[in-house]
């Protein structure tokens, strides 16, 4: 960490450093405890409830998967701001699945004088399937401003 990034150094097509994430049962339970501490068994933590809801097993909450995708941007550099993150849930993610989170720069420009970079994001299974896709708008400071 501690990396600094400037707008002038960002190019269309740049790949952000990828991250591998694998939410275990304990990981999901710890997240649910912060999210909804009063919640009992749910499709996210309880095998029986997940099956009654029609799922093959406990699933990873969408907002936890979304936070994993955000980390691709947040670890890119310390001096940038993730202003907006937009995701589409395209498939179930079960506990223990190994997922690679990736990002690619698709656009950059000044918007009202603000240096903004747009990034396409996706989460990929080893087989190539993408259960989560999205995009981010990122404020990246200009070197000139420093």
């Amino acid at each position: 960490m501690g990396k600094t990034l400037f707008f002038e150094d960002v190019n269309l097509g740049d790949a952000l450093p990828s991250l591998v994430r694998q939410a275990s049962n304990d990981t999901v339970k710890a997240f649910v405890k912060v999210w909804t501490p009063d919640r009992g068994g749910s499709r996210f933590t309880d095998e029986g409830q997940a099956k009654r809801d029609g799922f093959p097993g406990p699933i990873v909450p969408g907002i936890l998967s979304m936070s994993y995708l955000s980390q691709v941007v947040l670890t890119w550099a310390d001096n940038i701001e993730l202003e907006k993150l937009d995701v589409i849930y395209r498939g179930l993610i079960l506990h223990g699945e190994r997922l690679t989170c990736r990002g690619v720069v698709t656009d950059k420009g000044l918007d009202g004088g603000r240096p903004l970079v747009h990034v396409d994001l996706f989460m990929e299974r080893d087989g190539g399937e993408r259960p989560l896709t999205g995009s981010a708008r990122v404020l990246v400071p200009q070197r000139l401003a420093h």
Partner: peptide
């Protein structure tokens, strides 16, 4: 910590103090 955020500026007060 519950989402496994790797960047310490979001969970370590000392790293955050030195951060942006």
């Amino acid at each position: 910590q519950s989402v496994g955020e790797p960047n310490p500026i979001y969970w370590d007060p000392e790293a955050a103090r030195r951060g942006p």
